[in-house]
Design a protein around this nucleic acid. Structure first.
Length: 205
DNA sequence: TGTAAGATCCTA
DNA sequence: AGGATCTTACAT
């Protein structure tokens, strides 16, 4: 068993179509480093892609103050506030001037942050089961908008562990592809992926 | 300057 | 099924 962390995901790796990257991010690790240096890790188990010709994408019409980071280069965090309450974390993809991103919708956390345990009566698997919940669990808010995903910074990504890739190659793990959740536009685009048997997925089907 | 909708989540 | 809660985008 290899206990070393896989290599960090680079901006170059993320400089491709969001619809190609979104399924490949399943099984990769999101790392959140707090200001005190402590780290929390979660395996990504659910993603959604947002693309240029996609009416559901925030930058579909034109650049605005909120969506401008999606017009920049790949490898940057796009964080926004939804319903005045929750935050959502996206990874900007593709090259500059091509607005696109992958929404991280659920994580399987390996360690529960201590500020989550007492107040939440959530089962551990459900603590980061949803885009708003994972941002709450890892203290991700607007302060992290436009942050590059880089080791040692507040946020970064790591490639799949070899054992995860092997399980995928042997069809012992599989992905499910479905339509996206919570939208009123682009509802028929099948751009959501999740790890089929994961208990940490926001919802199945 | 006003207003309707929103890539959510929890409770009833 | 409804409410919390408030920013954003677009219309006036």
């Amino acid at each position: 068993m290899d206990f070393n962390s896989p290599s960090p995901i680079t901006a170059q790796w993320l400089s491709r179509d969001s619809t190609q990257i979104a399924p490949e991010l399943i099984g990769c690790t999101l790392v959140r480093q707090m200001p005190d240096g402590s780290c929390f890790r979660g395996v990504i188990v659910e993603t959604e892609a947002y693309a240029p010709e996609d009416p559901a994408m925030h930058a579909y019409r034109r650049p605005t103050a909120r969506n401008r980071v999606m017009f920049g280069a790949a490898g940057i965090a796009y964080v926004y506030l939804i319903y005045g309450i929750y935050h959502c974390l996206n990874i900007v993809t593709d090259r500059a001037e091509i607005p696109s991103a992958v929404l991280i919708r659920a994580l399987q956390l390996d360690t529960l942050p201590d500020w989550i345990t007492p107040p939440q009566s959530l089962k551990p698997d459900r603590v980061a089961a949803g885009p708003g919940k994972l941002c709450r669990a890892l203290k991700i808010d607007l302060a992290l908008n436009a942050t590059p995903f880089q080791p040692g910074q507040g946020l970064w990504l790591e490639h799949r562990y070899p054992w995860f890739q092997q399980q995928m190659d042997q069809d012992k793990l599989s992905l499910t592809q479905t339509t996206r959740i919570g939208l009123t536009k682009g509802v028929d685009l099948p751009w959501r992926w999740y790890l089929t048997d994961s208990p940490a997925v926001s919802r199945k089907g």
